[in-house]
């Protein structure tokens, strides 16, 4: 397999007045060229922080990447100088964010903001960059691109803004696109359009996508490989079909259970009992133990490690892997 990005034992901590939050705690994952990886989890599970760590966009203070490696095309991003990372940002790895309403600068035109990225990374002059921006806007399905280029963000709808964000992210032909809940703030029909667009662009450009979401519907539609995170740790990862067919971790099972299904008539939607643990006061053993319906004695004391259970399926749970528990 041709690996594009390998994250090894990434640790991103936040130092707050109340204590240290281990937002990303020993996370490892990988993305192959041309692959779409989905990272799934509840709010605050560290999925966005993982993504931001890749581009070293963690605000410091209070955040700090405390350890691990992020190998992109053979180079450890964490060891590069600030200038070298800047050359990768928006060029080889670009990112789109959850809130299209606030992710574009309100005082500059759409064109201005896209041209800026092109001129920065491709050393084109303004005229060529403008032409390229119009093409990029057309590619993401924005009508009247020649006019929209002179529009300010507030003059566009949420869906259009997210398209513009995608145009901005794709304009330098990145090899990896990180999309942090790109459809969460959009209404359902627009969501589908944006996902279609991303899939189309991926097929055309062979860009790998790291898609962060809490929506399993989006996962089913987009992912080839899935990583499930809980409280800063990876609890399960597998091929998308394997994961949906054969989910192992009680948390993943819970997530799947709490997804509404059209053809099943249920009085009330299932929800995982309890709440996401307090990051300042994590349980000693498995972080999911207090909410787990199948918790055992060992779960209270020992943190399970991620182990292969066949079919490339890995899970961090004491229910699987029997006697090789440490």
């Amino acid at each position: 397999m041709d690996e594009l990005l390998i994250i090894k034992n990434l640790k991103t901590y936040f130092y707050t007045d109340e204590g240290v939050v281990k937002a990303v705690d020993d996370v490892s994952l990988r993305i192959n060229r041309g692959q779409t990886l989905c990272i799934v989890g509840e709010s605050g599970c560290g999925k966005s922080i993982t993504a931001m760590s890749i581009l070293r966009l963690i605000p410091d203070p209070p955040g700090k990447i405390e350890g691990g490696e992020i190998i992109f095309e053979g180079k450890d991003l964490l060891k590069l100088s600030d200038d070298e990372v800047r050359e990768i940002r928006g060029n080889k790895i670009s990112m789109i964010f959850q809130e299209p309403m606030t992710s574009l600068n309100p005082v500059f035109t759409i064109g201005n903001q896209i041209i800026e990225a092109i001129m920065l990374h491709q050393k084109l002059d303004k005229k060529e960059a403008t032409k390229k921006s119009v093409e990029a806007l057309k590619l993401v399905g924005i009508p009247r691109a020649e006019e929209i280029i002179n529009a300010y963000p507030h003059e566009l709808s949420g869906g259009m803004r997210q398209r513009a964000m995608i145009a901005m992210a794709m304009v330098c032909n990145p090899t990896l696109l990180i999309a942090d809940e790109p459809t969460t703030a959009l209404d359902v029909t627009i969501q589908a359009q944006i996902l279609d667009l991303m899939r189309k662009l991926k097929e055309e450009t062979k860009t790998s996508i790291m898609l962060i979401t809490h929506d399993l519907g989006v996962v089913a539609e987009m992912a080839e490989y899935v990583t499930v995170m809980y409280a800063g740790k990876v609890v399960e990862e597998a091929d998308v079909i394997e994961l949906f067919k054969n989910p192992k971790h009680p948390y993943t099972l819970g997530l799947l259970e709490s997804k509404p299904q059209i053809h099943i008539d249920k009085e009330k939607l299932y929800s995982i009992p309890g709440q996401v643990p307090n990051p300042f006061n994590l349980p000693k053993g498995c972080y999911f133990f207090p909410r787990c319906e199948r918790a055992m004695e060992i779960c209270k004391e020992v943190m399970p490690t991620l182990k292969e259970v066949g079919n490339g399926h890995k899970v961090a749970c004491h229910l699987y892997g029997g006697d090789n528990n440490e």
């Binding site: 966009l57 050359e87 940002r89 928006g90 964010f97 606030t102 992710s103 574009l104 901005m168």
Partner: peptide, 21 residues
Amino acid sequence: QDYIRTARAKGLREKVVIYKH
């Protein structure tokens, strides 16, 4: 603000991020 993060994610220099955006 989010758009400052966007500006950084684009690869802009910190000076441009601060003094322009």
